[in-house]
Amino acid sequence: MSVRLQGTGLTVRVGAGRAILDDASISIEAGQVHALVGPNGAGKSTLFSVLSGDITPATGTVDLDGTPITGISPRLLAQQRAVLLQENAVSFPFTAEQVVRMGRAPWARAPEADEDDAAVLEAMTATEVAALGARSITSLSGGERSRVALARVIAQRTGILLLDEPTAALDLKHHEDVMRLITEQAGAGIAVAIVLHDLNAALAHADRVTLLSSGRVVASGPPAEVLTAERIEAVYGQAVDVFPHPITGVPLVVARR
């Protein structure tokens, strides 16, 4: 596997105060789903924003295919990585299709613009929002908006997907559908970094997990090796049991009550 994004020694501070991300390092590889997990305030979204190029760290570097991300123009960066943020508020009454089509903006006046219609249709079909294409985005439910936002970044057709809690507003079916779709994207060779709160989703779908606590990387590696009962209790302050699913054998995390 080739490393697409490499973050090394990343530190982010609040003004001159404490570090909200402290000497964190991470590698995002092609063909893998890499989950960023940890309790609230652990630094997941901050690390995500540094990897995407939206936040410049006080120390450390992020390289995209070996090139410092700070030296890549915004247009070229948008052609190489797509970013889905937690908040996807759209105030104007664009249709769902128009929102998805925004994902094609980096390719305007490029040869890839010929793929716009096919990319939009493919992404909307994959996320099951094709039937919502003519609807105003402001009329959609939270879950529908989340799937439209995901369709936008998939339509962008980049080799790197950075997804911040894409399943947060979804019901059970669409949660699983989206995680399967994300796994399929990785299977096609795309490098995926995803912020998750659901540890069971990380265990079931991620190839690699980075666990953060208080801005520091606690562990990084295969999900079953990182998300042990002892480590989860130490980081989250909640006793859990971790045991294999009786049918699939995939580890399950259950809070001890």
Rank of each mutant, 00 (worst) to 15 (best):
M1P: 03
M1E: 10
V3E: 14
Q6A: 15
T8S: 14
G9H: 14
T11D: 12
V14C: 06
G15L: 04
R18Y: 10
A19K: 07
I26K: 09
I28M: 04
E29S: 15
G31T: 11
G31E: 12
H34N: 06
H34D: 09
G38N: 10
G41L: 08
G41F: 03
G43L: 02
G43K: 02
T46Y: 00
L47V: 11
F48D: 02
L51V: 03
S52T: 15
G53P: 10
G53Q: 10
T56S: 15
P57I: 11
T59R: 15
V62W: 02
D63G: 04
D63A: 13
L64R: 15
T67Y: 09
I69P: 08
I69D: 01
G71Y: 07
I72C: 14
P74T: 08
L77K: 06
Q79H: 03
Q80T: 01
A82K: 02
L84S: 12
L85P: 00
L85C: 01
F92K: 07
F94N: 12
F94D: 14
E97S: 06
Q98E: 15
V99H: 04
R104V: 08
P106Q: 11
P106M: 07
P106D: 06
P106C: 12
P106E: 07
P111S: 13
P111Q: 02
E112T: 12
E122V: 02
M124N: 06
A126D: 08
E128I: 00
V129I: 13
A130M: 05
A131N: 05
R135E: 05
R135Q: 13
R135W: 03
I137M: 08
I137G: 01
T138E: 02
S139R: 11
L140V: 05
S141E: 09
S141M: 11
G143D: 10
E144A: 01
E144S: 06
S146V: 00
S146D: 00
R147D: 04
V148A: 03
V148R: 01
V148H: 04
A149T: 01
L150C: 02
L150W: 08
L150H: 07
L150T: 06
A151L: 06
R152L: 02
R152P: 04
V153I: 14
A155D: 02
T158H: 09
D164P: 07
P166E: 10
A169I: 01
L170N: 04
L172T: 12
H175A: 05
E176S: 07
D177N: 15
D177V: 01
R180D: 08
T183C: 05
T183F: 00
T183P: 00
Q185T: 11
G187M: 13
G187D: 12
G189A: 13
G189R: 11
A191T: 13
V192T: 07
I194R: 07
V195T: 13
D198I: 03
L199Q: 01
A201E: 11
A201V: 13
A202E: 14
A202V: 11
A202T: 12
A204R: 15
D207H: 15
R208S: 03
T210N: 00
T210R: 03
S213G: 08
S213M: 03
R216E: 13
V218P: 09
S220N: 03
S220Y: 06
G221R: 07
E225P: 00
L227K: 10
T228A: 06
A229N: 08
V235S: 14
Y236K: 00
G237A: 05
A239W: 01
H245D: 15
I247Y: 11
T248A: 03
P251N: 12
P251R: 09
P251L: 07
R256D: 13
